[in-house]
Design a binder for these strands. Structure first.
Ligand SMILES: [Mn+2]
Ligand SMILES: [Mn+2]
Ligand SMILES: [Mn+2]
Ligand SMILES: [Mn+2]
Lengths: 221, 221
DNA sequence: TAGCACTTTTAGATTGATCTAAAAATAAAT
DNA sequence: ATTTATTTTTAGATCAATCTAAAAGTGCTA
């Protein structure tokens, strides 16, 4: 268990992310996409991670994280999200500004630091984007949430997360006052372009494109 | 001005540190000592830093920082010390625990982050070890301080800094209640081993070895 | 001034991380 | 079941950062 390079950590995080999305076996291709590197580089790195028993790997068969690899990955996610929370809660960054800095901070090595930070923040369970912060054992809180687009007419809900983390999307949400915690009620589905009309508490009405309504998570109330 | 690797940054910081101590022209040897690397590696790196115009260099002639190199170095020191202050002030680390974590945090790249952190901490002028935190332009506060060993009998002072940052020294100081801010009065110099006896406010008396008294900075009162 | 000690540079290798181009394997389609 | 397309691996290079061993340069000392 000598310590990993940032690059190795980034690969593990990428593999974790993809396997959460697409299932346990992750293709070279998906990794090279996510990491923006050549397929050859991925093959090479997978070999190294495999030698360190962080991934299971047989040629042409895809990779999956071992328990240890998964631990490393979830710990990175934990650090990433805690730092994002720190930046927003304590240093008044906005939710569209924190990701890139957290990408760096997540590689800081100090178990104690992470636990102290967690405590300092009051043990937050979700990050500024509504994503769950795993606990020290790598367990994620689950929350029953649905894309806003799936609310039936008349349903009410609260915005609790975003699917897309692009700055432009987050800034758009700020502009239309649909940040985390916003109360919404579905008023109408338009068949034509799958846009929706919602009421946004207490008195605003808003039409949202398909893309927006599918990328916003709400909790039904 | 493409961005520097952590290694390059560490070399610049080392060169800065040595030149503060020993004068502007820094030898290969001193750097290899400070960085714990071979002289050959130093020569190699110096070549690279020179090509990037971060140091002035002619073979066998020693190196010195250019203005740009100096800027980078002082900014690293600024970040290092702000993070140390953060760890102590906000996350309740002790002064002997923070250096290694700050060695990592100092490489985080985000101008805004540094300025926000500075503000969050209330613009501290000194770090937990009493070292000055340079401002954004790289200017260090100067403070007239002397090693405790140089107080004359009867002189009073306040502990404001340490020369040696070793954990064991810092822990020793905690044990004998000689942290930053402690009030001391010189009572006696012992010629035999150059130890000293001091009064430590309000009522303690303490004998300190030469090594200790030379590594503690006080401000005369 | 000639010799010796110490410092610095060069030469040559290694390791991690990356690339492109080509070969091999797998998956999809005809 | 062949052929074709796509994915994955290999081969061979490059670049940064490091090392050891040897050569070259500086400078002190007798
Ligand atoms: Mn993020
Ligand atoms: Mn997030
Ligand atoms: Mn320090
Ligand atoms: Mn310090």
């Amino acid at each position: 268990m000598e310590s990993l390079s940032q690059t190795e950590e980034n690969y593990l995080k990428a593999i974790f992310k993809i396997s959460e999305r697409d299932g346990d076996s992750v293709s070279n291709n998906a990794i090279s996409m996510e990491m923006q590197t050549s397929a050859a580089s991925v093959t090479d790195m997978i070999g190294r991670l495999s030698k360190k028993e962080l991934v299971n790997y047989q040629k042409h068969r895809g990779v999956s994280l071992t328990d240890e690899g998964r631990q490393v990955a979830t710990h990175l996610v934990r650090k990433h999200r805690l730092w994002e929370a720190f930046l927003v809660e304590k240093l008044s960054f906005t939710w569209d500004e924190v990701h890139d800095i957290a990408e760096q901070l997540e590689h800081i090595r100090s178990r104690v630091l992470v636990e102290r930070l967690d405590e300092f923040l009051g043990f937050p369970r979700f990050d500024p984007h509504g994503d769950p912060i795993p606990d020290a054992d790598g367990n994620f809180a689950v929350r029953k949430q649905v894309p806003l687009s799936e609310l039936a007419v008349g349903d009410e809900g609260i915005v609790v997360g975003v699917q897309d983390h692009a700055s432009s999307f987050l800034q758009y949400l700020d502009r239309v006052k649909l940040g985390l915690g916003a109360k919404v009620k579905m008023l109408e589905h338009f068949e034509y372009d799958e846009s929706v009309k919602i009421r946004q508490s207490p008195d605003g009405e808003l039409v949202l494109s398909k893309k927006v309504s599918q990328n916003l998570f709400v909790q039904k109330k």
